[in-house]
Structures are given as C-alpha cells and as structure tokens.
Amino acid sequence: MNRNVFLKAVLLAVFCSATAFSSISSAENNLSVEVELPRLDVAEYHKPYVALWLEDSNRKATQIALWYDLDMKEDEGKKWLKDIRQWWRRIGRKAEQPFDGLTSATKGPGKHVIAIDLSAKHLQGLPAGEYKLRIEASREVGGKEVVNIPLVLPVNASDYPLQAQGSSELGAVEVKLN
C-alpha cells in the first residue's frame, strides 16, 4: 500500500471518530425523560396513546415521541390519534405518521424512559430559547392529561433534573441530563 494513502486513511479515520465523539458524548445533547404511567383501577383498561414534543414560545412544535396502537389491521389505530388533542393540533394533523424512528407501540403502567439526542437531525437546528417539553396521554374510555416541563435550549446543566407530576393519566415525569 502506498504510504501516503495509508496516512491519509489513518488521518481521516481519526478525524471522523473525533467528530463523532464530540457529537455523541456531549452531555448537553443527551436528555432522558422518564414518564410514569400510573396503574389505574378501572374495569376497562387500555394502554394510553402518548405523545411527547418540544414547543417554543410561539407554539412551534417538534416531535419527540409517539406511542400509539401500531398493531391494528389497516393501521386503524391512527383513527384515534386525534384524541391526543393538543398534540394533534400542534403536530399530528400536519404530518404524515409514523414519524420515522419516533413512533412506537403503546406502553402499560410503569416507568418508561425516552432518550432525546438534541444533536439528532430533527432537533439540532432548534434555536436557543425557552421551550416546553409537553407530554400528553389519552386513554380509550378514559381521560386525557397534559404535563408541561419548561426548559431552556441550549441546556444548562445546573437546571437538571427537571420534574413534574401528573394527576390522573400521567404520574411522575423526570428529565435528566445523561
């Protein structure tokens, strides 16, 4: 192998891994949100539809996660997406579902963790400023609840962890810096 080419390859490899390293390991870019879905003592329980999104002070919204019933035939589960009402108004009705990589099946009672990589393609361009992380749950034959957690971008490590508490359809919500 030609020595120059080899050196170039080594340099390129080092350069690439350095770039990757800086974007992945930066703590300020990695949030984790723990969302608790309460166990409810009801006769007919269906796992709730849940949406998470970031909303700026002009109500411009950016999708973080969506849990809905993916398994119904002919994607019938989409019929009820409108019932995640605030999300539907801010994001859902404007876009094609599913959101690539952001959509998953509904989840039952317990604590669920959602990782937010702020350097991800759809989030990296968010301008600095005040935001709300909004978590909305809507349960079939049940209630609806929205929990809001104000946060600032770029993130300020001393603000974390951030916490909020739902009262009916959502339990504790905690945002941590990884």
Binding site: E74, D75, E76, K78, K79, W80, L81, K82, W88, G92, R93
Partner: peptide
C-alpha cells in the same frame, strides 16, 4: 359526530 379526524379516509 366529529369535526376533527385522523386516520385513513375517516
């Protein structure tokens, strides 16, 4: 019955 709908051809 509804004014705001989601899903395919509701």
């Amino acid at each position: 019955s509804s004014t705001s709908l989601s899903g395919e051809a509701p």
